[in-house]
């Protein structure tokens, strides 16, 4: 996969957002190529170690660059970004990891699955098949700690958000809404529909790295039984190496460019 952005005269679009943030938009679509270009630019800017640049927040199709304007003048930052934009197509990205995330569907773990079945007029086994047969891309992490925005949901499962949020879900809840899928990391009320739960904690502040997923990762879901779910909870409590157990390097065609 290349991270050359789609050619468009409008992009890249550079603009300040307040006095201490600067935005670089590389497109206006949820698209793996644009997202890959975002990650390439982020890495290139990080390699440049720009004095006064404090933090970069990459998202689907843009980067927000936080900086200290009294140390790093806007003009200098803009120049550096133009320089980075030229270099970034040649910056190798780390090999994407490929996760297989175990999910226990329905019943206590996915209380909305029958509602989704009724709303979309498909059977529960069809929902599980559609959800597990897709390959997802982690486009970005945001909203709350370690929360992964996933693209790649089967069109059969596209469903509008709830009108009013459902009560708080537990960490590990597996949700769908619109064209997106996600893994919840925090208990929070949500407009998403919950199909199941994974025993894998995607965010643990004391773990290094605290967040399991990173943007650019590929992900699949695999169905497990309630017993397997309970056993995995115990295994994880007893120190199971999650990365070793559930992540593998992606096939070569998903690796660095």
């Amino acid at each position: 996969m290349t991270h050359q952005p789609q050619q468009s005269p409008e992009f890249p679009r550079l603009y300040p957002m307040g006095d201490s943030a600067f935005v670089v938009e590389l497109g206006d679509a949820v698209d793996p190529g644009i997202n890959q270009a975002v990650l390439g630019l982020e890495l290139t800017l990080n390699h440049m170690s720009i004095h006064g640049l404090s933090e970069i927040v990459p998202s689907y199709r843009s980067l927000m660059i936080l900086f200290d304007p009294l140390i790093l003048p806007l003009e200098t930052l803009t120049q550096k970004i133009h320089q980075a934009l030229l270099q970034s197509p040649n910056t190798p990205l780390p090999r994407a990891r490929h996760w297989t995330i175990p999910v226990c569907y329905g019943a206590d773990h996915g209380e909305d699955i029958t509602e989704v079945s009724t709303l979309l007029n498909i059977t529960v086994p069809e929902i599980i098949a559609a959800h597990t047969n897709a390959e997802y891309r982690v486009y970005m992490i945001g909203f709350s700690p370690g929360y992964a925005y996933l693209g790649g949901l089967s069109p059969r499962l596209h469903i509008p958000r709830r009108q009013t949020p459902r009560p708080a879900v537990k960490p590990g809840a597996i949700g769908i809404a619109g064209q997106q899928a996600c893994v919840f990391t925090n208990a929070a009320p949500t407009g998403w529909y919950i199909l199941g739960a994974t025993p894998i904690p995607a965010f643990e502040p004391a773990r290094d790295p605290a967040c399991l997923f990173r943007a650019g990762d590929q992900l699949r879901f695999a169905e497990i039984s309630p017993d397997r779910y309970n056993n995995l909870v115990l295994d994880i409590q007893n120190g199971l190496d999650i990365t070793a157990a559930f992540a593998a390097p992606a096939p070569a065609n998903l690796g660095p460019i």
Binding site: M17, S20, A21, S59, R61, S62, M64, Y149
Partner: peptide, 10 residues
């Protein structure tokens, strides 16, 4: 909009 970064004071 397609979700993007929120600076302080946005």
């Amino acid at each position: 909009i397609i979700s993007d970064g929120n600076p302080n004071g946005a």
